[in-house]
Design a protein around this nucleic acid. Structure first.
Lengths: 141, 141
DNA sequence: CAAAAACTTGACTATTTTAGTCGGGTATAT
DNA sequence: ATATACCCGACTAAAATAGTCAAGTTTTTG
């Protein structure tokens, strides 16, 4: 059960921004160097973050990205949502008539997986970007 | 963030056994028919469940598998463990000196992912096979 | 104005993982 | 005997992942 790297890097990069931004735009180049993430990959990730209104961009020299919300208001679930990283632990299609494994009834464990999804989602819903920084902040200042 | 089908089917199959076993071995053929899971795939799954002592087998005619523990003592985490389905949401290698992204320090979000893993694991640790059946039992009896 | 820094975007690709299948066994109840 | 059911390693097609690449556009600053 893994999170994809896009989501992980997105959270890392945004955490980096929260630490290093002094009300100015943070360039992907800087994030790339500090966090050891490929610049080209970061570009792809930030495209999505921008489209989903998690960050806004400033072009040109001294440009970069700026967090739309303050870290204490930015939920981790917002970040994952921007990257299509759905917490959908199993693939039973709830909507179709034949719901699970082609049977007409829900699969025997269906309720359990729903519960799991809700459980995990609530973790991401309740964590803010600022929560991530509390512990590790010192190392980076 | 997905669980693989092996793990999902394992839980389904064991739940099926818990419901349909009357102290006799349950054949994979029956499970396959009831749950709509490929027999060949079930064999592969049960091989691992057996190796990890979740089930024991009875060979020959009227053979099949038997749960080693009673459903109310069998933790879901035991099942996932048997299938190598580790809850390790991100790939930072804790053990190596260079821990995350080749940096010498832990990545900025490392603690967060650890927390997430622990959170999810505790869900599986605290759920027993019998918990799954409480709600959906009726439909299958 | 020129040039450099930095964002923009779609397409492409190698690798890995997943979700199984296949073939050829062995054990045992009837 | 023989049918049923477990046993086990190897194989494979398809999908997902983790990026890279190419070719831009915009804006600041010297």
């Amino acid at each position: 059960m893994k999170l994809n790297t896009k989501s992980r890097y997105a959270v890392m990069a945004l955490a980096d921004m929260a630490v290093f931004s002094r009300n100015n735009a943070v360039s992907l180049r800087d994030i790339s160097l500090r966090q050891g993430i490929s610049l080209l990959y970061l570009e792809q990730i930030f495209l999505r973050l921008k489209k989903n209104n998690v960050v806004k961009s400033v072009r040109g020299i001294n440009g970069g990205y700026i967090l739309v919300k303050s870290p204490k208001d930015l939920k981790i679930s917002d970040i994952l949502l921007a990257l299509d990283q759905k917490v959908k632990t199993v693939g039973c299609k709830k909507e179709s008539k034949k719901s699970c494994n082609g049977k007409s009834t829900k699969c025997i464990t269906h309720h359990f997986w729903d519960e799991l999804d809700i459980y995990i989602n609530s973790f991401f819903e309740n964590k803010k970007l600022s929560d991530l920084l509390k512990i590790e902040r010192q190392e980076y200042k």
